[in-house]
């Protein structure tokens, strides 16, 4: 069944359709949250919270974007709320703590996790959405509620930062 049919049925209160939608988009959502939170437990909690919120608010979903994009937006907002509530700042000193959840990860994963954790959240969000999910600048701007120019400059910052760290140079400020 096509996504728009499932969304239509889910909006009418068909829980089976909603289950299929969540099932189809679970990997995208969880993958995204894992990459932005860099914390397995937190990503799992946020995935569950996001799906519950999507269930409650499905009637408000306008078919202007893909269902996965909508889920990602909800997930991003929930993560920002979580950070605000817990006054948790992603800082270099927190890297060890952040990696605890990815114990079974490969060595390369740990290095990338470390580098991603060093990036400020607003910039990391852009990098993850662009690199791993292939959204264009305009879509990212809409999702994060910021102008395209800002998205571009954040992406440029991330790439410069990663490039310099991976090649052993100093990053620009």
């Amino acid at each position: 069944m096509q996504e728009f049919e499932l969304v239509y049925k889910a909006k009418k209160g068909d829980l089976k359709a909603m289950e299929e939608l969540l099932d189809q988009n679970y990997a995208i959502l969880k993958g995204y949250l894992l990459k932005i939170t860099l914390d397995r437990e937190l990503a799992a909690d946020l995935t569950q919270e996001t799906m519950l919120k999507a269930l409650k608010k499905i009637k408000k979903f306008k078919n202007r974007s893909k269902f996965s994009t909508w889920l990602i937006s909800i997930g991003t907002n929930l993560y920002k709320d979580h950070l605000r509530k817990n006054h948790r700042l992603i800082m270099v000193e927190d890297i060890d703590k952040l990696q605890v959840g990815i114990l079974e990860a490969k060595e390369t994963d740990l290095i990338i996790t470390e580098l991603l954790a060093e990036l400020p959240l607003d910039k990391r969000l852009v990098l993850v959405l662009k690199h791993y999910f292939g959204y264009n600048y305009q879509e990212i701007g809409q999702m994060l509620n910021c102008p395209v120019g800002t998205v571009k400059s954040r992406m440029y910052y991330c790439m410069n930062f990663l490039r310099k760290r991976m090649t052993g140079g100093e990053e620009d400020e």
Binding site: E19, L22, K35, R40, M51, E104, K106, D109
Partner: peptide, 18 residues
């Protein structure tokens, strides 16, 4: 960046729980 691929579960249990 492409090498970064955190292990994933199927999500079956979580979707069922939700």
């Amino acid at each position: 960046l492409n090498e970064f691929d955190p292990p994933m579960d199927s999500g079956y249990l979580m979707v069922k729980k939700v």
